[in-house]
Design a binder for these strands. Structure first.
Length: 433
DNA sequence: TCTGGGGTCCTAGGACCC
DNA sequence: TCTGGGGTCCTAGGACCC
């Protein structure tokens, strides 16, 4: 690593291999060498595949119902997604990373960037391999680590680390530019972070096929064809950090809660129940993050995949004053529904989005004069008790009447769900010895 | 029958103001 | 009656990420 300038920051991208599928294998040693896939919400399509499933040619993103015969024929184990489990494992891995590196940027449920300064820079390969071993030993999850001077290059390095077993799950692009370029020349442009499927086609038509082509494209062309976003990506490939550099955490701007339904929903009352439920969940998240919302967008739609007439409608409701009160949110959702509901359609999905979020404390200071403070405090205390009960006894232990009770057609399909092995006492695995 | 959810960022275009 | 240019704000739509 003597070739790299130690003054420049160095980034490591730690990425869990086949994360959801790996989590499902953790407590099922019988599945260790078996092909496993995990489905999206509502058992929609494949979002994670174990190495064995990939080797069998199971395609990523395929709708489950279309390849069900193939899955059965190949003996693939199928799981619904179990976010309670994945979220918990993710938290454990993050804790390990934070123990070993002072600057960790969580990026997604299965990825984090680490900024490596001296003295971690001194023994980069050793540090990376040790980190990988510890995570594997302490959690059972195998990760890949890519190292480079920008986050985009670290992503490329990670892609390379995953590509060949010989690299042992670690690959560094902190090396002379000619060597970086040799790697970029072998990297398809579609693998570059920030280049999506839509752009790949256009880029190919213009002769930009590899990451190296993108790096070497002209600035004017990049800005014109790919907007500043694409230009920044190219700069990052040139070793110039410019993505995610302003390290101030960005406050959240919006919050969504929506779901596809297990079965088509025709009745207004059922949609009302579903939307009430989404509004209540969104409210709980608002309160957990000490936020209030200025308005809500209510959304319902039929399926895009049918020849029948497509109906897709969104309505925005602005609150009289910003709130995190579930009563008010449910009321707004139902009001919105009244305006956009049309009978005669089989609805496939609904949801609410809360926008104009702001800090609860800041609002309170402003509002103190405006509203009857006693009434406001009463309402807040009610929500606090509700949240406390649900924290203690599980989500939906106490709900609003508008949310309905029991099984409903709008609940999501989860036919292959594993137990919440690490987050629920009742579902803890038993070991006999 | 059955094809996810939750977000961010960027641009273009219109309205409005000076 | 003539009628430019620049700035800001908002919204819709598209693209991307995992």
């Amino acid at each position: 690593m003597s070739s790299t300038n130690c003054k420049k920051p160095l980034w490591a991208l730690v990425d869990c291999n086949n994360f959801y599928a790996s989590c499902e294998k953790l407590f099922r040693p019988d599945l260790a060498a078996r092909p496993v896939v995990v489905l999206s919400n509502n058992d929609g399509c494949i979002v994670s595949r174990s190495a064995e499933a990939k080797a069998l040619g199971i395609p990523m993103g395929a709708p489950e119902f279309k390849i069900r015969p193939l899955l059965r024929e190949l003996g693939v184990e199928v799981f619904s997604s179990n976010y309670a489990l994945y979220g918990d494992i993710s938290t454990r891995i993050l804790a390990i990373l934070e123990r070993h590196c002072p600057l960790v940027e969580p990026y997604s449920i299965d990825e984090a960037f680490l900024r490596l300064d001296a003295p971690l820079r001194a023994n980069l390969p050793e540090f990376s391999r040790a980190l990988r071993d510890i995570i594997l030993r302490w959690t059972g999850i195998s990760v890949s680590i890519g190292l480079a001077e920008t986050r985009t290059l670290a992503k490329v390095a990670n892609y390379v680390a995953k590509s060949r077993a010989a690299y042992g799950g670690v690959f560094s692009l902190a090396r002379p530019e000619a060597e970086i370029d040799a790697v970029l020349a072998r990297t398809p442009v579609g693998e570059v972070w920030g280049v999506g499927r839509r752009q790949v086609k256009r880029l190919h038509a213009e002769g930009v096929c590899t990451a190296l082509d993108l790096k070497r494209a002209g600035d004017l062309w990049l800005r014109k064809r790919l907007t500043v976003a694409g230009w920044r990506t190219a700069l990052e490939l040139r070793g110039l950090p410019c993505i995610g550099e302003d390290n101030t955490p960005v406050p959240r701007k919006a919050l969504m809660s929506s779901r596809s339904f297990a079965h088509k929903v025709r009745k207004r009352e059922m949609l009302a129940q579903a939307l009430s439920c989404f509004a209540a969940r969104a409210g709980a998240r608002l309160r957990r993050e000490s936020l209030v919302a200025g308005g809500m967008a209510v959304h319902i739609r039929t399926s895009r995949h049918e020849s029948a007439r497509f109906y897709d409608q969104t309505l925005q409701v602005r609150f009289p004053e910003p709130t995190a009160d579930s009563h008010a949110l449910i009321h707004a959702a139902l009001q919105g529904l009244e305006r956009i509901y049309r009978p005669g359609f089989g609805y496939a999905k609904a949801g609410v989005m809360l926008f104009d979020l702001e800090d609860r404390e800041r609002l309170q200071a402003r509002l103190l004069a405006a509203e009857d403070p006693a009434r406001q405090r009463r309402r807040e205390r009610l929500m606090d008790s509700l949240d406390a009960i649900n924290r203690r006894f599980g989500r939906d232990a106490v709900t609003f009447g508008a949310q309905g009770l029991g099984e409903a057609p709008w609940h999501m399909r989860r036919e292959h769900c594993s137990p919440r092995l690490t987050t629920d006492w009742k579902e803890l695995p038993l070991a006999r010895c």
